[in-house]
C-alpha cells in the first residue's frame, strides 16, 4: 500500500516549518516532500508529480505566486494552498491567470491543514 500514498509537496524557505508540515503529513498517512524555494519546488513538481502543493508566498528565487502560475500551467488539477505570515495576502491570493485553491494564515492550526488536505486528496 506504500505506493498508494498521496504525495504532498511542502514549499517554504523556513526549514522548521517545512519539517513540521512534512512530519505532520507523514503522521497523517501521506508522503511529504519539501523544497526551500519556488524554483526547486518546480523541479520537484516535474520529477515527482505531487498530488498537492502547500507553499509559502514570500520566498527567494521564485515566489509563491510565480510557482502557482507555473504549476497551474503544467497541470491545473494540482491543488495549491498558500500559507503566509503576510495576513494581507489573503486579499490578493489569486490573480487573473491562476487562482490558489486554499489560503492559510500563519500561525495555522494543524487541524486546518488536515482539513484542506482531506478536502483535496
Amino acid at each position: 500500500m506504500e505506493t498508494l500514498k498521496k504525495k504532498v509537496l511542502v514549499v517554504d524557505d523556513d526549514e522548521v516549518i517545512r519539517d513540521l508540515l512534512i512530519n505532520f503529513l507523514k503522521f497523517s498517512g501521506y508522503e511529504g516532500i519539501g523544497a526551500p524555494d519556488g524554483q526547486k519546488a518546480l523541479e520537484m513538481v516535474l520529477a515527482d508529480a505531487p498530488d498537492m502543493i502547500i507553499t509559502d508566498i514570500h520566498m527567494p528565487l521564485m515566489n509563491g505566486f510565480q510557482l502557482l502560475r507555473a504549476v497551474k500551467r503544467l497541470n491545473s488539477e494540482t491543488p495549491v494552498i498558500f500559507i503566509t505570515g503576510f495576513a494581507h495576502f489573503r486579499r490578493f491570493f489569486s490573480d487573473k491567470t491562476a487562482r490558489a485553491d486554499g489560503f492559510l494564515e500563519k500561525p495555522f492550526s494543524l487541524e486546518s491543514i488536515d482539513g484542506l488536505v482531506k478536502k483535496y486528496l
Binding site: V16, I17, L21, G85, E105, K106, P107, F108, S109, L110
Partner: peptide, 10 residues
Amino acid sequence: INTPLGIILG
C-alpha cells in the same frame, strides 16, 4: 512573528 508562532502551535 507569525512564522515562529505557527511552528510553536504546529
